[in-house]
């Protein structure tokens, strides 16, 4: 097998879309699970089939989050640019989640919504730190590339 054939076999594994897709599955799955969980726990007097529907949605969100985690941990490496995109995506979606949960906490006060809001705030903080670290790591690599390209 020559190098081009080998690269052809590998190129599917190197798709930026698939790597960012794994991050999106994790972030949106987890965010969806938290929001739906808070909504479910604070919804008064639900009928049995509505509980089932919420349960199914919750399982779906957690399955996506689990799938994304597995992909990132075992199958899909995140390179410097991916880290920055993933951090930005996580930060944006967690801010959205936090806003939604805060609205929920205001309209349906209780320990569940307060806990969900605290968890969402933690996710925002974590994703901000991850984004900052990813940007710093990429900056180091870009600087080194510049040095090597200019023979410094």
């Amino acid at each position: 097998m020559n190098p081009e054939e080998m690269y052809g076999r590998l190129s599917g594994h190197l798709s930026l879309r698939s790597r960012i897709g794994a991050v999106a599955a994790l972030v949106l799955g987890l965010g969806g699970a938290v929001f739906l969980g808070a909504l479910w726990a604070t919804e008064p007097s639900l009928r049995a089939h509505t509980h089932v529907a919420f349960g199914m949605l919750e399982i779906t969100c957690l399955a996506w989050a689990g799938f994304g985690t597995w992909r990132i941990a075992r199958r899909t490496p995140l390179y410097a640019l991916d880290g920055v995109i993933a951090g930005g995506l996580a930060l944006a979606s967690n801010i959205l989640l936090m806003s939604g949960v805060i609205v929920l906490a205001i309209t349906r006060p209780g320990w569940v919504t307060v806990a969900a809001a605290a968890f969402a705030a933690l996710m925002v903080a974590t994703s901000a730190v991850l984004l900052a670290r990813a940007r710093a790591r990429r900056a180091v690599l870009l600087r080194r590339r510049h040095e090597l390209e200019n023979g410094e």
Binding site: P3, M6, L14, Y79, L81, D82, L141, L142, L148
Partner: peptide, 24 residues
Amino acid sequence: ELMIIRCRLGEREAFAELVRTWHD
């Protein structure tokens, strides 16, 4: 080193170059 740095940055052409150089 430059090739590796470019791969770590996520540049797709660098992956192809890496395979071309080291596959044999």
